[in-house]
């Protein structure tokens, strides 16, 4: 594994470049196919409302996949991610229009660990709500 960021160049509080990830209904259909998760709450508005949701929502795992891109783009080598965990706090609601929803991800170094590893704390927001909680990755730096 060859991260392009060295342990010595980061401090607690170092911010990673943030990312903005748009998600439309088409994105969700595509993700359903690629991931094998065909739960209709992610593509069928009628079904989503029947089970008490405001509208179609994004797969939690889609949001989790987008959030870690901020870390993998920063580290250079996605294999540098040695741990990654999230809590799904709020759904990302995806309306049936051209723009859909936006997932906005920011991240900073939360702790410097042993063995040239760091803990990165992530924040993922959509429509002003925090959609991931306790979102953390441990990254092996060079």
């Amino acid at each position: 594994m060859t991260a392009k960021i060295t342990y010595d160049e980061v401090e607690v509080g170092t911010e990673l470049p943030a990312g903005s990830f748009p998600v439309t209904r088409a994105t969700l259909v595509r993700y359903a196919g690629a991931s094998g998760d065909f739960n209709p709450i992610h593509w069928n508005e009628r079904f989503a409302r029947e089970v008490g949701l405001p509208d179609v929502i994004a797969h939690g795992m889609f949001t989790m996949a987008e959030a870690i891109r901020v870390v993998t783009d920063w580290a250079g080598d996605p294999g540098a991610v040695v741990e990654y965990g999230v809590r799904f706090t709020k759904p990302v609601v995806v309306p049936d229009d051209e723009t859909g929803a936006l997932i906005e991800v920011s991240a900073k170094v939360g702790a410097k660990l042993d063995d040239r590893r760091v803990r990165v704390d992530l924040t993922a927001m959509s429509a002003g709500q925090k959609v991931l909680g306790m979102s953390r990755a441990v990254v092996q730096l060079a």
Partner: peptide, 13 residues
């Protein structure tokens, strides 16, 4: 059922 938390720990990718 809804998905509450998810976590991974990797030995390698």
């Amino acid at each position: 059922v809804v998905h509450g938390d998810q976590r991974f720990a990797y030995s390698r990718p």
